[in-house]
Amino acid sequence: MPMSREEIFARVKETLIEALGVDEDEVVGEATLTGDLGAESIDFLDVVFRLEKAFNIKVPRGELFPENILTNPKFVNGKKLTAAGLAELRKRMSHADLTGFKDNPQVDRIAELFTVDSIVRYVESKVGVG
């Protein structure tokens, strides 16, 4: 059943508070998981597990948080994503906002794409917005 955007956001927020042990007021739309909310790699798995439970959805491996992009030489040149890498990222992460990133696609800025909003958009694509 489709949910409202607010409902989805509230439930994502709850999920992040539980998984990352952060305060309610820290979980705002533009907050980044690693930078602002202090998530480590294992926390990403925890977030996936909790989202599946909270929304009764399946989150296939690599769908919410893509893998194997940075390890592929076709997609990375030095410290930047190549055009092919950027295209791949866009294809795999339609839930991310690449506006600011695409002008300076530094590898170490990829973490900034994982925001609370990107999770909300991903969940929306799974459950449908009513």
Partner: peptide, 10 residues
Amino acid sequence: IEQINEQFAV
């Protein structure tokens, strides 16, 4: 066991 898959278990 709450969940178990190829990557992790809860």
